[in-house]
Amino acid sequence: MSFEPKLRAYTAPVFTVEVGSGERKMTLGGESVQPLCFFDKPDQPAPLIGVEVSDIGFETEGLPELAAFYAGADTLAARAVKAASLPGASFVCLHFEGADPAATNKSVEDCVAEAKEAVAACPLPVVIAGCKNIEKDTALFTALAEALTGENLLFLSAREEDYKAMGAAVALAYGHKLGAESAVDINLAKQLNVVLTQLGVASSSIVMNLGAAAAGYGFEYVASTLDRVRSAALEQQDGMLRMPVVTIVSAEAWSVKEALVSEDDMPEWGPREERGIQMEAVTAAACLASGSDAVILRHPVSVEKTAALIAALM
């Protein structure tokens, strides 16, 4: 008897979330197959790749390729334009690291001015990432959401501690999309979606930022959380877990020892840039295999190769 593969498509797809306005738009989510299983049903949407740029510029010691790529791009807007030019990039993520009170503590006004300039210049949809300081992020996101009304940006992210202020300002008052950030746990993720929805934020305005880890650093929790969230969405049609998932790979991958240590300190490990690229690329592939609808990456080479991987699977 000849082998006939059974196809496995689901009736209820992952929700879609539209980000961007005018010419530059993207749709996150919408698939009704298991991660990367495009063969199960025709016309499935591909996962997207976002390129991270920093308001203060990346530290590039030992990273000559990255430095060369952004050479001469001295403003956030210039870096965003550069990032958007990468083949395979679907959106640009403006990361306001400099707003962190523990770092340069850049003022909200300065961040807003830079963001407006960058959004105006960037030809791709824009995603905003904060500095992880709850108070500063709340003030920053509220101001950015107001200043960029109508741009339909995605803000990463609202957390348990600040979802009320973020939900009210970013999503309800100024009509942007909101990431719901939880710490690699399906129950926390669901709970945050529930309370955001109760606040009045539509599910079509919510994406999930389930947290991430670099390969080797507890990635089993990331993989299994993604697996379980996607199973809940597709198999159990759980409306509070059907939102698309965006994973910030870059910050995790580039902050582990393997990507940080200089070649001088670890000569046998080889060039730092090669290690960072591999850490970012491997982590991105593993996230996509487990169910991320979009990954945010930093290095042009990992963007290129991840795009090649997705293209090869489509």
């Binding site: 670099a214 390969a215 080797g216 650093y217 507890g218 990635f219 089993e220 993989a223 299994s224 393997e258 046998e268 490990w269 080889g270 060039p271 090669e274 290690r275 690229i277 591999q278 850490m279 690329a281 491997v282 982590t283 593993a286």
Partner: peptide
């Protein structure tokens, strides 16, 4: 199998094949 490839890949394998 360079160090650059091994560091993330072996770490990933160790994670994925951990008993939950």
């Amino acid at each position: 199998m360079t160090y650059a490839a091994a560091l993330p890949l072996f770490g990933l394998r160790q994670n994925i094949f951990t008993d939950p």
